[in-house]
Structures are given as structure tokens and as C-alpha cells.
Design a binder for these strands. Structure first.
Lengths: 181, 181
DNA sequence: GTCTATATACAGATAGAC
DNA sequence: GTCTATCTGTATATAGAC
């Protein structure tokens, strides 16, 4: 529970960034070490295997998502709107780690898939009181999943069709009017 | 335009299945050849590189999606309902190739990402006349994307939270009532 | 059209110096 | 805590026999 060493965090940052920007295949120990400005041996002091690196990202996801759930619950704009808005802020630390972890999940890391599914359940539980019924809840969740899917599809500089500004506001209003309570 | 040799197709099937079931990392030339029941040399006769294998899957996506667009347009149930229903039939040949190609896209294959985005535009164009407005159209598309995201998250035997049967019917009805015209 | 054998490169991980 | 050097396995691809 003590704060982790600086070098450890920057290695984890580098790994996350590589997974997001170039895919998990490109996020090798070598490339991660280079991006973090350490040697491969230095990296392996902090994370003794590639699995440990993945586990570090899962831990980061747990911490950031617990924060997010609390923020959503207490949002003045209403939980549904707050939830949808955080589903699209591509550059927030939480969104970054979600995209990275879902990439890992799709490359055969079962624990990563489980972590994403658990987070989805936490979100469902937080939003359920604010959804008209279970079908409405699924509509809200699926729109959010769709936003992540489009974010996750983007590799390198080519971005997907993600609504912004007034478009996003209109979408949130539509989801709230058809599924919110 | 002549029909492709049987062995070629079974190699492509094996590659697709491996990408879906175990992730693109596990879909090596070796594993693909083994699953298809040919040697690595035999595989490389039909697909001279891993990129050629990916290109084969993209070609399959183009063919199947052109069919799908036509079917959706002419559906008696209405295009929106037909579209959402095909977004969830995990075992259809089109859904399989979409999941496989989106996995490739997320592993740094830019042409795969472009192919998925082009397909999304074709769907948008087919559904636009049946959506209330652009926001409603985005709602429909994002719910479909969300269904794919949950399908794509599944690796191995652990399946995601995908609505079925009566749940799916209720979801389709809700989307139609709030976004259809 | 399909095979075996092999070349080349690189990924993950260990050992041990500093 | 960070480094260099090295081992081992495996992925892509080529060459050439059948």
C-alpha cells in the first residue's frame, strides 16, 4: 500500500502507452524498457515477467475504476450522463488503462478479460437505480461499450468515429430520455 | 473471381478460428498450418506471408459484408431490427470474420482497422433512412458496436454478457422506439 | 501443390557485475 | 536498483526435394 517507486510507474506507463498506440504485439519487454528509458534488466527488476507487467496494469485498473465509480455515483449531472461522458474521454487515465486491458484480454490474457467484466458489473450496479428497467440498463451499457470499441479500434494516429461536443450532448440526452429514470 | 481451392479456404478458416478462440498472438503460421492439417510449407504456398493471410481475411470480410448489407436492406422485419439481430449472431460467418478482423486491427494492422471503419460507413448509409436523425443513428450504431465489443472480449470459453432471446427482443424494441422512424 | 530442412531474427528470461 | 551479456525457445520466411 506504500507508494510505488518512480521508475516502476514509468515502466508501467510506457507499457500502457505501447499497448494503446501500437498494439500488445509491439509492447515487448525490449520496446517497453527503451520507451521507459531503462535497460531490459532494469525493467525486470521491477516486473519479473511479462505477466507481472500485465498484473501491474490490472492493479492500476482496479484503483482507477474504484475512484470512477464513486465519482459517477455522486455526480450532480446524474450518474447516467456522467457515466457516458467518462466513456469517451479518451485521454483520461482510466480510459487509457481500460483500452490497454481490453487489448490484453483479446490477446489471450484471461485475467484481463475477467477484470473488464468485473468492472462492467460494478458500473451496472451503480447505474441500475437510475435506469428504467434491465433492458434500459443494457442499452446504456452497450452504448458505452460501443464508445470503447471505437476507441479501442484505433491504432496509431487514425481515430474512429467518436461523437464529440454537441453530438455527444445530443446522444447523452437521447439515452437519458429513452433509458433513464 | 474463380472459386478458390479447397485447401486455401481451410487454411483461412483455421487462421480465423485461431484468432477468434485464442487471439492473434496464438495464430502463428505453425499453429494455423497444424489446425488446417497442412505443413507450414503447404500453407505458404497459398499465402506467401502472414500479411497475405490477413489480406485473405479482409477479402472474406468484404464479400460477406456486401451480402449482409443487401439482406438488411430487404428485411421484412425492418432494417434496424435486422441489423441489431445480425450484430449478435456470434456464429454467423460474417460475425466471425468481423471479430477476427477487429482483433487484427487492434494488433497494429492498419488495413484491418480501415476495413472495419468502411463497413461501419456502409451500415450507416443503409440505416440512415430508417433512423430518426443522426443522433438516433449513432445510438443504433453504438449499441451494435457494444454487442461486438462484448463478443470480441471473449477469448476461449468464457463468454461476455450478451443478451439473448426475450432480452434481445426487448432491447431491439427499445432501440426502435427511441431511434427508429 | 505439398513436403522437410534450414536461415534469420527476435522475444522472454537468467546470471552476475557494478 | 540498474546495467551488460547470454541462453533458450519460437516466429517468419526461404530453398529446394518430391
Amino acid at each position: 500500500m506504500s507508494r510505488p517507486p518512480r521508475a516502476r510507474e514509468s515502466v508501467l506507463d510506457a507499457f500502457e502507452t505501447l499497448v494503446i498506440d501500437e498494439g500488445e504485439r509491439a509492447a515487448t519487454l525490449d520496446a517497453t524498457a527503451r520507451a521507459a528509458g531503462v535497460s531490459k534488466g532494469g525493467l525486470l527488476y521491477h516486473f519479473s515477467s511479462k505477466d507481472a507487467l500485465v498484473e501491474g496494469l490490472l492493479e492500476r485498473l482496479r484503483v482507477l475504476s474504484a475512484d470512477d465509480i464513486e465519482q459517477i455515483k455522486g455526480s450532480p449531472e446524474g450518474p447516467v450522463a456522467a457515466f457516458m461522458r467518462t466513456s469517451i474521454m479518451t485521454d483520461s487515465p482510466l480510459d487509457r488503462v481500460i483500452v490497454a486491458v481490453s487489448r490484453l484480454a483479446q490477446n489471450g490474457h484471461p485475467t484481463a478479460g475477467a477484470a473488464i467484466r468485473e468492472l462492467r458489473v460494478l458500473w451496472e450496479d451503480a447505474l441500475r437505480p437510475h435506469a428504467r428497467d434491465e433492458t434500459a440498463l443494457q442499452l446504456i451499457m452497450l452504448v458505452s461499450d460501443g464508445l470503447y470499441f471505437n476507441n479501442a479500434l484505433t491504432v496509431g494516429s487514425v481515430s474512429g468515429p467518436v461523437p464529440e461536443g454537441a453530438e455527444l450532448d445530443a446522444l447523452i440526452a437521447l439515452v437519458e430520455s429513452s433509458a433513464g429514470r
